[in-house]
Design a protein around this nucleic acid. Sequence first.
DNA 1: CACGAGACCTGTTCGC
DNA 2: TGCGAACAGGTCTCGT
Length: 301
Amino acid sequence: MPELPEVETVCRNLREGLPSRSSRAKGGRRPGGRPQAGRRAACPSLLGRRITGSRLLWPPTLVTPAPARFRARVRGQRVREVTRRGKFILVRLTTDTLLFHLRMGGALQLEPRAAPLSPHCRLVLELGTRWQLVFCNPRKFGRVWLTADPGSVLGELGPEPLADAFSVEHLSALLAERHRRIKPLLLDQRFLAGLGNIYADEALHRARIHPLSLASDLPLPRRRALWGSIRKVLREAIRYNGTSFDEGYGGGAYFTRLRVYQRTGRPCRRCGTPIERILVGQRSTHFCPACQARPGARARS
DNA sequence: CACGAGACCTGTTCGC
DNA sequence: TGCGAACAGGTCTCGT
């Protein structure tokens, strides 16, 4: 599931820890409150903890270095910082950096060492006697790197859409030189880091751009609108802890705000027209045929 | 350079 | 109810 807002949520949870929460607390759900995940024990911050051991349960998870070297090298290092770049989670250690990519789902969280491990658990980093950092990944697509040079892993990534340096002029210039359909372009992490299928569809709808539009053909007002909608959608989703349909993200609730993603046949929240679903570059793509005019169907200018 | 197809995987939902 | 098909938030590689 994870796109930029979900990964940001995971990072924040690792940095700040999670307060305890019970599904039965205070007579159930607050009226108007965000839906809450189930019972969860309190867990502390990952920052400052020392890695005392590791267990690799699905070897293909580890890209580099080889397992024996990984185990020897990661042991004894202390966690200094937890940050995000695109959809990567960066855990800076004493001398190296651990990079995690969840790909199509999963979780990275602190758990008591006494707790039973999920069958989807692929890597465990032991943190003393009480806690462990657990990388769960049901579909086995997720990957982990340990390196002194994170740039070697992140090298090709495009700009960070929420960074101050990512200006409307910057995006506009990048779009102008790409003869590519806008939807697959937004999913290309070398073009822009962090968008995935949900937020690409949502950003395009808010900017009123048809997903098959040619990037280089977008008129300036659409390009400006896209810059704003990308940032707005991502910021808003982060406030809601992402759009999670499963556990492990601390109650992501942005699905209540989605305007097109997986709303096929339901009315557009702006104009009431039924949302359509098409395939673009093998990915499900949701849009409003009225709000998001076809590239060919040019209005008189 | 741009694009489609296939691969990598398991779990859940849909249709008959 | 049961069972296979379709589908899922991502990315890589190959062939055209």
